[in-house]
Amino acid sequence: MQLDSKTFNSLFTDYRSRYVRFAVSYLKDDFLAEDLYVESMMTFWQNRESLPQDTNVPAYVLRTLRNKCIDYLRRCRLNQDYCDSKGKAEIWDLDFRISSLEKFVPENVFKHEIEKVLRDTLAGLSDESRRVFTMSRRYGLSVKEIAAVTGLTEKGVEYHITKVNKLLRVQLKDYLAALAFVYLFF
């Protein structure tokens, strides 16, 4: 496909923080996540000419990033020394992350007007709830940290997070059901 470097640069900036956030949640390593994001973007740039013109670039990059994360986590799983140093729960968590990533379908993220649902739901929140939720999701702060920064009690912070999560689950119910359906066939 044809793509000038200016468009590429703005794609790079637009998707950076959310894709890195996604990778961090699987890799548990900020720097590695950042590296793999940059590598994924570079992979796309190098292969762009052999891709069809209607390629969904964000989905392509997300798929590359997902594959790189799987590769890394599988290598960890096969590394005897690494696994010996971890507890049973951590290994279970690692296996769960690998299988979740394997089932993850990047194209789905861009379907079903998911952005609109999220935007509408969050726009309807109280300022306090949105503020707490933003710190929790966008900045990845723990309940304890949010309490320390906002001056709310930890219970208060948890109340807001629970409320927003509940709301999102209701709003995204159909979307999640559709995803579960897809898995039955793949």
Binding site: S17, R18, Y19, R21, F22, S25, L62, F96, S99, S100, K103, F104, V109, I114, E115, L118, R119, L122, D127, R130, R131, F133, T134, M135, R137, R138, Y139, G140, L141, V149, L168, R169, L172, Y175, L176, L179, A180
Partner: peptide, 28 residues
């Protein structure tokens, strides 16, 4: 648990404007 992980991923991948919140003063 798997379904919850999907929702979690979805939220992580949500575009920044969804959270647009100019008065948040936290910086990592």
């Amino acid at each position: 648990l798997e379904k919850e992980r999907q929702l979690f991923d979805l939220l992580n991948l949500a575009p920044e404007e969804c959270f647009a919140e100019p008065e948040v003063k936290v910086r990592r």
